[in-house]
Design a binder for these strands. Structure first.
Lengths: 124, 124
DNA sequence: CTCACATGTATCGGTTGTCTATATATAGAT
DNA sequence: ATCTATATATAGACAACCGATACATGTGAG
C-alpha cells in the first residue's frame, strides 16, 4: 500500500520543510485566515506545489500561537465554526526578519548550485 | 548551560535543513572532496552562513553513498588518511533534477513572501 | 434517510533527520 | 605533555513532518 514517495517528491518535501513557518506567516501577512483557507491559499499561490497536510498545518499553527507570533479567535457563520488567525506585532516583526533571511539564503544556495559560491575569480 | 539557539538562528538552521543534500551534491559537482573539505568549502561559499557540523555531515555522506549518489575511496598522503568522495552518474543526474527543482521552489517562495503568490489579477 | 463528499479542526504515533557529545588518530607548535 | 587543527565516525537526545484517524457540519443525489 505504499504511500512511498519517489526521491523527487521527497526532495521537494524536504525543501518545503525548512520554510513552512515563513510561508504560513507570509499568507497571514496579507489578511486573516483560518487553517483550511491557509491550505488552499498556499496551494493556489504555489500552483499546486505546496500541499500542506492537516496533520502538519494544525500543530504548526499551535506552535506559532504558543510562540505568540499569531493569535486566534473562533468565529461562526452559517453554522460553521472557524478559527481565524492573524499576525501579532511580534509575528509581523519576525516575518520581516525571516523574509530578509530567506532572500539571503536563497541567493546563497542559488550561487552555490550555479557554481558561483564565493570563488576567488570574479573575472571572465 | 545553553547551546540554546535564538529564534533567528533556529530559522536559518531550518532553512538549511531542506537543502543540505543539494548543497553537498553541488560542492561535489565541481570536484572531488573529502568530508572536512566539504565543510570548509560550504562555509566559504556561503560566507560563513553554512556551518555544517561533523555529526551532521558524516551521516549525510553515508546516506548519500548508500543511495549510490556518491562513491568514496580512502587515500593517504603525508600520513593523513582522507576519504574522498565523488558524484556517481546517478548522483549527477539527481543533482541536475534537484537544481531545477530548487530554482522552481525558490521562485515560488520568493513570490509568496513578496505577496505575489499567483493572484488572479496580473493587470494594472 | 442514507451515502458520499467537501469543509473544518484536532491529535497520536511512526519515521526521519539534525545536532551535541564523545571517541579515535595524526601532526606541528610550545 | 598539552594545545590546536585536521580528519572521520557513532550514539543518543530531540524536533518536526505527515499518514491515519477522529469528530462535526452542510449539501446534493438517490
Amino acid at each position: 500500500m505504499a504511500g512511498k514517495l519517489t526521491q523527487n517528491e521527497k526532495f521537494e518535501r524536504d525543501l518545503l520543510r525548512g520554510s513552512l513557518d515563513l510561508m504560513v506567516l507570509s499568507v497571514l501577512a496579507d489578511e486573516s485566515h483560518y487553517g483550511y483557507s491557509i491550505q488552499k491559499r498556499l496551494s493556489a499561490a504555489s500552483m499546486g506545489k505546496v500541499k500542506l497536510p492537516a496533520g502538519t498545518l494544525y500543530p504548526l499553527l499551535h506552535r506559532l500561537e504558543t510562540d505568540k507570533l499569531i493569535r486566534s479567535r473562533w468565529e461562526e457563520s452559517t453554522g460553521r465554526k472557524r478559527k481565524w488567525y492573524e499576525l501579532t506585532a511580534k509575528g509581523k516583526k519576525r516575518l520581516k526578519v525571516q523574509v530578509s533571511q530567506w532572500h539571503q539564503y536563497a541567493q546563497c544556495v542559488t550561487n552555490l548550485v550555479n557554481g558561483k559560491g564565493a570563488q576567488p575569480k570574479p573575472s571572465g
